[in-house]
């Protein structure tokens, strides 16, 4: 795989998950996840996804060289999430990071763009379940791994106030 594609996949993943690049790299799975998306959807789809993402960022970037969150959100919705081919793949990338599971793409997608054996629902590795970001988002451990320690459950959860209801910002990435 080419290094720029990996860098862009990582950048896309940061925007899709709201976890920092170091968090994503810290899972040790970023390369495997990109490979998984390639196996499941094909090189062409991955290239198109990253192209659309690059275009969305460019569209949202102002004179200061940084993307404006509201404009980026709109550009992602228009160019990626609402796209017949790219939308389901982007949503799958989010779920891959959060759950550690590659979910089978919907039949309307495979009907149009082809079904590959690797596209079926599967865990990528035993570690991917344990590294699911979902658990970190809710300040819990993946059941069966990364135990927090005896009695920890009696304490309040350590959830950043920005993610608690009515206490964060408006929410968009």
């Amino acid at each position: 795989m080419t290094a720029p594609a990996f860098e862009e996949f990582l950048s896309l993943s940061v925007d899709l998950t709201a976890f920092e690049e170091t968090d994503l790299l810290g899972t040790g799975l970023a390369h495997q996840y990109l490979a998984k998306v390639r196996d499941a959807c094909g090189e062409e789809v991955v290239t198109a996804l990253l192209d659309a993402y690059r275009a969305a960022r460019a569209e949202a970037t102002g004179d200061d060289g940084r993307p404006d969150p509201r404009r980026l959100d709109r550009a992602l919705r228009h160019r990626v999430f609402s796209d017949e081919r790219l939308g389901p793949v982007a949503r799958n990338v989010i779920k891959l990071w959060y759950a550690g599971t590659w979910y089978g793409l919907p039949p309307e997608w495979t009907d149009c763009y082809g079904a590959r054996p690797a596209a079926e629902t599967s865990t990528v590795t035993a570690a991917s379940y344990q590294e699911g970001l979902l658990w970190r988002a809710i300040a819990a451990n993946p059941p069966g791994a990364k135990a927090p320690g005896y009695g920890s459950w009696a304490q309040p959860p350590r959830i950043d106030p920005r993610y608690r209801k009515g206490q964060g910002h408006d929410g968009t990435g």
Binding site: D15, L16, T17, A18, L76, R77, F81, A90, R91, I94, K95, Y98, A99, T101, Y103, L134, A137, I138, A139, P157, I159, R162, Y163, R164, K165, G168, H169, G171, T172, G173
Partner: peptide, 29 residues
């Protein structure tokens, strides 16, 4: 929580910060 995740992402159009907020709201309560 996997069904909540799938619902927030697939039907709710959530990603990024909004997804994290949605998960806490839907799962941690």
């Amino acid at each position: 929580p996997m069904t909540d995740l799938a619902d927030l992402v697939d039907a709710g159009g959530r990603y990024g910060e909004s997804l994290r907020q949605g998960l806490v709201d839907r799962v941690s309560r």
